[in-house]
Design a protein around this nucleic acid. Sequence first.
DNA 1: TTAAAAAAGGGGAAAAACACCCCTTAAATA
DNA 2: TATTTAAGGGGTGTTTTTCCCCTTTTTTAA
Lengths: 213, 213
Amino acid sequence: MKAHTIAIVEDHILLSQAIASLVDSFKDFNVLYTCKNGKELLTKLKTPSNIPDIILMDVNMPILNGIETTEIVKNEYPEVKVIALSVEENDTTIIKMLKAGAKGYLLKDVEKDILELALLETVKHGYYHTKDVSNILINSLNSDDSGKIQLKDREIEFIIHTCSEMTYKEIAEKMFLSPKTIDGYRDNLFQKLHVKNRIGLVLYAIKNGIYKI
Amino acid sequence: MKAHTIAIVEDHILLSQAIASLVDSFKDFNVLYTCKNGKELLTKLKTPSNIPDIILMDVNMPILNGIETTEIVKNEYPEVKVIALSVEENDTTIIKMLKAGAKGYLLKDVEKDILELALLETVKHGYYHTKDVSNILINSLNSDDSGKIQLKDREIEFIIHTCSEMTYKEIAEKMFLSPKTIDGYRDNLFQKLHVKNRIGLVLYAIKNGIYKI
DNA sequence: TTAAAAAAGGGGAAAAACACCCCTTAAATA
DNA sequence: TATTTAAGGGGTGTTTTTCCCCTTTTTTAA
């Protein structure tokens, strides 16, 4: 009998089933089920026999994304370990995911042996990180904290409007502010985000998931 | 003995190995090898024993992408059938891939049974398409052809510069053109792509893979 | 609790972007 | 051969953006 059970959460069904096939080929692991998003997972988990040892979780999903789902799982099923699985190399996403309670973070371009190792280490020690991810973590901690640029809600609102091909005048109307105040938002953000113009703002927003295309 | 050999071309190793595991579980198929990009595939193919019946090819890859690779494979190894495998639902990409010579196009959110069916049908009839892709094809043919917006090389160059936070003056210098010509490019593109300003241009470029972030 | 910082508002002016006219020349194509 | 299309450029505006400067109020921190 195989020792440990795995659930897979991934929105692309073929990938989900392919990873399931791979995990099933590992000696000590057994895929309990796969699901398409966080919402589906949470429904499944309500049945006690559906609680796996480890959840392999994609980060970018519609309906309920990996970060939100991981947070809920950590609170309601603290004994279940979540390993994030993502193509995303974005530092902030990784940190968000780990903060949400993920015990590991694997990039989709690792070897299958690393996946197996990660699963083994996670059942044995409770966590596993590849060197890449560890380095990102160390950097993020060493970067004297101030590293994280914190945007205010109102600023994010402004950025989203900027990404929507609106002029500042239009944004001012939409946000019930004077065009001059909007000027201030923009000037601040240019400095804060080290960009030269609106284009830079849009690129920053897309890169950091503020604006989705 | 399994009847048909498959090669997998996909830049994310874990996915590549996962799909390999899945394909190996199919009764009539056998994965010959996997590779990380088009260049690696072309090197492999030089050894006659490495020529598979079907190549499962990712579309978005670094080094040599799916479209370019498929074109080369079609010309040099016409007996090999290429099936595209992609998360991309972008119509133009699909059409480009099929034009390049792909015998099928699967989205990564199909069921594994569909993948098996696609492989079977491809060896039997030479091609396979899911309904989704067929519909896209039909639409693209019915849309009185004019549907496809064709960008010129010089226009694409201009768009990429625009995405790089450059002013039009800077772009003009970079492209050895008068600022007035650049004005013309911009005005033309605004009309052609139905956008209001530079932001729209940037969004279009990112959506259509012209500019990668 | 007071000083400092941040948020929210704005003015003026220069630079850039945008819009809409126009033109020539060469190449492709009908 | 005539006509269209691609490629390059000009002129003249208006609007928007950008970059300085400023005040007042509200938070935050010492």
